[in-house]
Amino acid sequence: MSMNLKVALFGIAREIVGQPTLEMVAPEGQSAQGLLQDLHARYPALARLSSLAVAVNNEYAADDTPLREHDEIALIPPVSGG
């Protein structure tokens, strides 16, 4: 079984990927860490950032957080507000 994920991109992650959202097919139960590994393989420049977090429904996700098809998922490169 696989699921369709929509991943929102911001800042330098958006520039590296070249678009504001990514549609991805992932295995059922894919973890936040698994998603990051897939993305690092497709976009090696993402792996060179100081940090890259996954957010699920407006909260930072732990590595083992399982992703679900209708979650609001986003990639969070190093923040620099203030």
């Binding site: 911001f10 800042g11 330098i12 969070i76 490169p77 923040v79 620099s80 507000g81 203030g82």
Partner: peptide, 14 residues
């Protein structure tokens, strides 16, 4: 508040 904002709030500066 300002120190924590700078660590966690999803805002990016170019």
């Amino acid at each position: 508040i300002i120190d924590t904002l700078k660590q966690v709030v999803t805002i990016w500066k170019k």
